[in-house]
């Protein structure tokens, strides 16, 4: 597959602060590429640099095989951007907003009409064409924001946390819309705080921290990088401290997270972790209300790599 984006040794400094430090990655045509990182890790700086908005200190950025420059209009015509901050005009209707932003790329009125209606259909706003943004819920507003960025059918689409503060129904709609766009051939760069979205959407993921790439691969590849194999949650009415200490002494236990009426035990890769735990519970007469076995999630991988919660 062709590389749609190729970033090499990208360095961006704000005064003494190095936001991106020799950051490199590439995105292949037709991929949904997840860019993950805690707040302040350099995700947005990376996207703004790739878009040519920021002056960079070092590095090389190529899009569609061409050098990205602020006046690379032949590249820009095939790019769509959906920002975290909703940027639609309150005094224009849903249809007019999409038509306005689409019109910055597509001059022909008839073609545009078709594209605008398609975008409205993709995000499911058919019933709201004549509504103005102040009359839309947060979720519908996000959908409108997306429609404004996709109507001109970009080949490359940047989505910066498009589902923040969105109700579950709208979130599902948005995720399905993104899948649909990707199936139609759009390459997508996706940043989010929600791991389940990354697992649902992304073909490949890059974890960025302190302006550097710290891990890259498919979701499965990243999970394999984790040293944790199993995570077992045990729910109680109450449990004594000395009993928790005994659980911590079980073989292969890497960490124990204690919460009110619940503990989460992280095991290293080994067989029979569950069996050993259940034996201990029986032996110590610990009354468990529920025992749940979970495989490590992307969030666990992320925690292990960056030492921080993604929602930090």
């Amino acid at each position: 597959m062709n590389k749609v984006i190729e970033v090499e040794n990208l360095t961006k400094r704000y005064g003494n602060l190095t936001a991106l430090n020799k950051f490199s990655f590439s995105v292949k045509e037709g991929e949904i590429f997840g860019l993950l990182g805690p707040n302040g890790s350099g995700k947005t700086t990376a996207i703004n640099s790739i878009l040519g908005l920021l002056k960079i200190n070092e590095g090389k950025i190529q899009i569609f095989g061409k050098q990205m420059q602020p006046d690379a209009y032949d590249i820009k015509k095939d790019i769509g951007v959906i920002l975290q901050n909703v940027a639609v005009f309150d005094s224009l209707t849903v249809y007019e907003n999409i038509d306005y932003f689409c019109g910055l790329y597509v001059a022909n009125k008839e073609t545009r009409k078709k594209l605008v209606n398609e975008a409205i259909k993709v995000v499911g706003l058919e019933k709201y064409k004549t509504f103005t943004p102040p009359k839309l819920s947060g979720g519908l507003l996000r959908r409108l924001n997306i429609a404004c960025g996709i109507a001109h059918k970009p080949k490359l689409l940047f989505l910066d946390e498009p589902t923040v503060a969105v109700d579950p129904q709208s979130r599902n709609n948005i995720l399905e819309s993104i899948k649909k766009l990707n199936q139609q051939g759009t390459t997508i760069i996706y940043t989010t705080h929600y791991m389940e979205e990354v697992e649902f959407l992304c073909d490949r993921v890059l974890i960025i921290d302190h302006g550097k790439s710290v891990a890259e691969g498919t979701v499965e590849q990243l999970k394999k990088q984790a040293t944790i194999d199993e995570k077992i949650e045990v729910e109680f009415d109450e449990i004594a401290e000395n009993k928790i200490a005994k659980i911590k002494k079980l073989p292969n236990v890497k960490d124990v997270l204690v919460e009110p009426q619940k503990i989460t035990i992280y095991f290293a890769k080994e067989n029979q972790n569950m069996t050993k735990l259940l034996e201990l519970l029986k032996k110590e007469d610990i009354k468990a209300n529920a025992v749940n076995l979970q495989k490590p999630t992307l969030n666990d991988v992320f925690l292990e790599i960056t030492g921080r919660e993604l929602r930090d």
Binding site: L53, K76, I79, A87, Y105
Partner: peptide, 21 residues
Amino acid sequence: EGNLSAYGIKHVIVPFHKIKI
């Protein structure tokens, strides 16, 4: 202006100079 608002960013990434807006 791209450094002033999200609208500005949208208007700077278009395939022509923002002066046309």
